[in-house]
Design a protein around this nucleic acid. Structure first.
Lengths: 226, 226
DNA sequence: GACTGTGAAAAGTTTCACAGCT
DNA sequence: AGCTGTGAAACTTTTCACAGTC
């Protein structure tokens, strides 16, 4: 006990969410650098490829450990390995897809998850038209079988692609089954319990928050007044 | 001049980005409420459907105007209309798709943009296999024609779905053409000039920032030590 | 009694600046 | 000379608390 805690710089769980959200960017940049054969990198340089301030990077990393060599910089391979460990990226993760409509099928066909260790191993839908459908190695199952499959296949993460009206009930269902993270493509903010992590993929919200800056509000105001 | 500025509660441009990013959520929730026939709503109730603290909502709205009636709440229809105006959602926006690969084709087929006033009116790719392809009403064009089409079709927003290696050059190209907002599906953080707005859709980063919380770091630490 | 609008307090996040290491 | 690690400062964002209004 004491032996281990001595190696902890700080308790890792106290890292704020903003810090955690930047770690995957470091991982990605470091992976690229490693491929390119770079062995050592400064926070300055890492900042250039991630668009994050060097002081921020040093600060973020210091939440976890002293990774750098004072005056030298960071060893790319070592830092990458440690960050992957911190983020839990040293293992594979099994995922279930919920909702095999147009969007769900596009997600099933997306090749970008596997190489990062995220594996879609099951898909669920209640529409009789798609239940039984075979997509690649996956057969679409009815949602009743969720609990069983989650247990059998050791699924921790769900990708939610059901229509908005059903999204909340599916979230609740997933919570009951012990799934603890959801990547949500449904256009709604779901209510989740303490302990459930959720990230929303919502292109329409993203677009709507940009048009604000494309709009000349002086002109708009006049139109509004008249 | 003076007449107009008198009606401005504050200069709208000084609203911080965090505030702006929440406005679309209010718009969405209010739209739902309006459909359901609700006429008046309190910050408390709006907070329940958006998962945002009531004080935060009141504070956010106060950056723009006094929308509420003291002691009463907010008129749903009026608040919705004003927020849409602030965000520039009272007009239609024309968008161009860059990159018509697997992902780009899924985006072309996505029906969720149009109803929100976002219209994909052109698509570009340099792969001879897809140039000339007709998808719905859109014919895929070579990227050389970008400038011309952006001008002719009054395109302000681009959706970027090219492979990572080409993403930065396409961003630069879009900047030159006067496009001022990009919804980026390529897995990289692009360098953008002052004035260009960009939002990243990156499911892998989202997943990687959740696995942190699914990982029991005490055990992991031991493994690492051994 | 219910609720907004708002200044002020609290909390959180980023940046600075520099001692100390190599 | 170059760079990390770090406490402190600056800044941003959220939350509180309550006067004022209906």
């Amino acid at each position: 006990m004491e032996v281990n805690s001595a190696s902890l710089h700080k308790s890792w769980n106290e890292a704020p969410e903003t810090v955690v959200s930047r770690l995957p960017q470091y991982v990605r940049a470091l992976g690229r650098l490693l491929e390119g054969g770079t062995e050592v990198i400064s926070s300055q340089q890492l900042g250039e490829s991630t668009q994050i301030a060097p002081a921020q990077i040093r600060n973020d990393l210091n939440h976890f450990d002293r990774f750098g060599k004072t005056g030298q910089g960071y060893n790319v391979e070592h830092l990458l390995e440690r960050l992957k460990l911190i983020l839990g990226l040293n293992t594979n993760w099994n995922m279930a897809l919920l909702g095999v409509g147009r969007l769900g099928q596009a997600i099933l066909g997306y090749p970008g998850f596997t190489s990062e260790g995220f594996h879609l191993v099951a898909a669920f839908d209640n529409n009789p038209r798609v239940v039984g459908l075979q997509v690649g190695e996956i057969t679409v199952r009815p949602i009743e079988e969720l609990d069983q499959v989650v247990r059998e296949q050791n699924i921790n993460i769900a990708i939610l692609a059901v229509p908005r009206e059903h999204a909340q009930e599916v979230v609740d269902r997933l919570t009951e089954c012990g799934v603890r993270a959801i990547l949500n493509y449904a256009p709604m903010i779901a209510q989740v319990q303490q302990g459930m992590k959720i990230r929303n993929i919502d292109p329409v919200l993203a677009l709507q928050s940009m048009t604000y800056y494309l709009t000349d509000r002086k002109i708009k105001l006049n139109e509004h007044k008249v």
